[in-house]
Amino acid sequence: MKSKIVLTRSDKTFYFFNDLLLLIALLIVLYPLIYIFSASFSDRLSVISGDVFLWPVHFSLEGYQAVFKDPRVLTGYGNTIFYTIAGTILNVILTILAAYPLSRRTMVGRNIIMYLFAFTMLFNGGLIPNYLLIKDLGMIDTRWAMLLPGALSVWNVIIARTFYQSTISQELFEAASIDGCSHLRFMWSVVLPLSKAITAVMVLFYGVFHWNAYFNAFIYLKSDELYPLQIVLRDILIQNQIDPASITDTEDMTRKQGLADLLKYSIIIVASLPIWLVYPFVQKYFVKGVMIGSIKG
């Protein structure tokens, strides 16, 4: 709104309640996040006695110290970083390789291949046939099981394809091909540089997916040393499997339990921190991804 508008009384009331509604929504979402953050920096007794309300009480890092005493956390962190980087690279390469040909209107058989891809969004084999396939391929309890089954998201292929179709015209390729440019060369030297934005969206979507994923690890992995962070988190947060070594500082059972309660808040922060740190810088790319995805292909 550029010009100063004189509001009628009923509009004033409307804007007041409208902004109030937004404020309530803001607080409902924000409060649990602040609480976890503050609890994680408090000491154990404040956490179990309910003294924490908004800010850290008796500021302390003992929760974080306990988290990093658990060897599973560091191993899991390392594994997750590996799965996220390797998995995302594989995802992005495969997505581009699928999306570019499918964006070319001259490609004979394009529709059939597109249906072949799209059908998998509506129907799939389900848990057991997938499990048996991974087993037959000998990938159970290997790092491959974390990379290959999820190597491509058809949804992202459609987003990238829509983007290529609307930004890189058929004429552009025709002009290039008259000068002797092949599809591979065109993809590398024209399409990729012109579509950095969509590649960034892909990297972010796939990256967050890998960071947060636990299902494939849960079904296919059995060895501790391969577990990603999310499986370790599940053990600690949900299965309540606290490593006794991380809470050995006292003999008192209440204090032990208190530390076990506290370290859960700390590990939530530790596990989510990388995403919170990049989120402010990349929010607009995520939004862009959703918007492109909402255009019918």
Partner: peptide
């Protein structure tokens, strides 16, 4: 040639399980 890899992936990791149904 370009779409060969993603297509192979879809056939192996999506359509094989359907065959397993």
């Amino acid at each position: 040639l370009i779409i060969l890899f993603p297509l192979a992936w879809v056939i192996i990791f999506q359509y094989f399980p359907m065959y397993g149904l």
